[in-house]
Structures are given as C-alpha cells and as structure tokens.
Computed example of a mutant assay.
Amino acid sequence: MLFRQLFDPETSTYTYLVADLDTKTAMLIDPVLEQVERDRQLLQELGLTLKYCLETHIHADHITGTAKLREATGCVGIVPQNAQAVCADRLMKDGEVLELGSVKVEAIATLGHTDSHNAYLINKTHLLTGDSLLIRGCGRTDFQSGNAGMLYDAITQRLFTLPDETLVYPGHDYRGNTVSTIAEEKQWNPRFVGRSRDEFIQLMANLNLPNPKKIMEAVPANQRCGNVAA
C-alpha cells in the first residue's frame, strides 16, 4: 500500500492519497479544490489512476476538489450515508468496506461533528478520522447539526475501542502534528481524559469558537461535491 499525507496550508486540511501498487489504482480522501493540480501531478508522477474520491463529511472550512477531479479523471465521488450531497456517485454506510486491489477501507460512522460523518479504517492500521477525533482534540459540535453527546459516544465507543497501535490521521491539524495513535489519544487527549459524557457536552457548549472563514461558500459548494457554480 502507498500512503501519503498532503497538506493545504490555508485551511490546515490534510488530504490523503492511498493506492494499491499492484493495480496502480488510487483514492483521495478529503481533496481540496485549490490543491487539485498538486494532486493530479502527484498521481501522474507515481503512475496512478484515480478511482475514488472519498469525503469524511460535508466540510465547512474548505471546498472539496472532488468535482474537478471527477471531471478530469472520471473517478467516483463518495460521501457518507445521509450526507446532503445529491451529486455524489455513491453513499458509504457504517461498516461498508471499499476495496482497491489489496487495500480495504472500512467506514466507521462517527457522528457528532456533523450529522453525517465517516472515519475510514484502512487495512486495519491507518485510521483517517476526518473532523471527529483530532490530535489532542476533536471537531467542534456547534453547527451543521452537530451533537456533542453523539461525538463523545462515537469516539469513546467506536474509535477508542480500536487496537492501541492504530495510527490516527486527522482531517486537520493547526499545531504542526501529523499523526498519533489510539493509545496516545486515550491517554493524552484533553477533551476526553477524565471527562464524563456530561462534562464533555458542557465543555463543547462553551468553546465559543468563531465560524470558519469559508463556511458560507464551502457548505453549499460541498453539497454540490465542490462544484462552485450554483
């Protein structure tokens, strides 16, 4: 398996390139519109054919590159079940497994940041958590039908029960971190360590964070899979 972590500095978004080296087929998880040419160049240099673009959720802080990539490559656009994105080619539900040669990607529903959100467990070793579990943090729950109690349940019951050595790759990082493990987050994540479900809900209700700068344009565009033309 080929695995690459790519970064968009404007929105601190991680895009992930995953490929099967035998079939030379690839998928991108959470592509960013402004980085489409970077991604296409990398695919070309590595001799890979893009088969899938997966979204962990409908993003509020950046516009997805899926529409542009689909237009250029004919790839299949996939969003989580119940996502408000009628343009998607396919919906991926909890427990569903997507295969790309020897690469197996399992969807784990991790609701709470939004009301449709998947983490993707790749070959049982690499967990792409989107905006649910972050390194020493978690996604906010104060817009897009967020629900702090559901996020607490998803992370503690669905993600923290994975093997300790599972690698955690988030959808964003704002402090320069790139990867963690389930064991580390269970021990050191201040949003969860020593907090009950009710205490977590209270904490999340009092973060008072500003809205993402791009929310007004990003959400409607991402409901069209990144097609910025209304």
Rank of each mutant, 00 (worst) to 15 (best):
L21K: 00
Q81E: 10
D142N: 15
P212F: 01
V32P: 00
H113A: 08
T23V: 06
R175C: 11
A205R: 11
D8S: 04
E37H: 14
R224V: 02
G149F: 09
I78S: 01
G130M: 03
I63Q: 01
T73D: 12
R38C: 12
D8R: 03
F200L: 10
S180T: 03
F200Q: 03
H113D: 06
A88M: 02
R4I: 08
H113Y: 13
Q44F: 11
G130V: 01
N211Q: 14
A109I: 05
M92Y: 07
G137Y: 00
D153A: 09
T11G: 01
E45H: 08
H172L: 03
L17Q: 01
A221G: 12
M92L: 13
M27N: 02
L203D: 07
M27R: 09
L17D: 00
V105H: 07
G77V: 08
E55P: 12
E106L: 09
K104M: 07
T25M: 07
T125E: 07
T161M: 08
L128F: 12
C225G: 03
V103T: 03
S196R: 08
T114W: 04
R197M: 08
D173S: 08
E184W: 15
N82Y: 11
A85W: 03
Y52L: 04
T156G: 02
L209E: 12
G130T: 07
I201S: 08
H126F: 13
G137D: 06
T73Y: 10
S116G: 12
G194Q: 07
L121D: 00
A60Y: 07
F200E: 04
L50K: 07
T161G: 10
M1E: 08
Y16Q: 01
L111W: 10
L128A: 00
L91V: 13
A67C: 10
A60N: 09
K51W: 12
D61A: 12
G77L: 11
S145T: 14
T181N: 08
Y169L: 07
I122W: 02
V18C: 00
Q44E: 13
P170T: 04
R38F: 11
W188I: 15
V219P: 12
Q5S: 15
L48P: 01
L162V: 01
G226I: 02
N123P: 05
D164G: 12
L207T: 06
D131S: 12
G101H: 02
K51E: 13
L54F: 13
V97M: 09
S116P: 02
I63Y: 04
I122C: 04
A72V: 11
L127M: 10
T23F: 05
R195G: 06
P190N: 11
G171A: 04
V179Q: 12
L151E: 02
A83I: 04
H117V: 06
L54T: 02
S180E: 01
F160T: 04
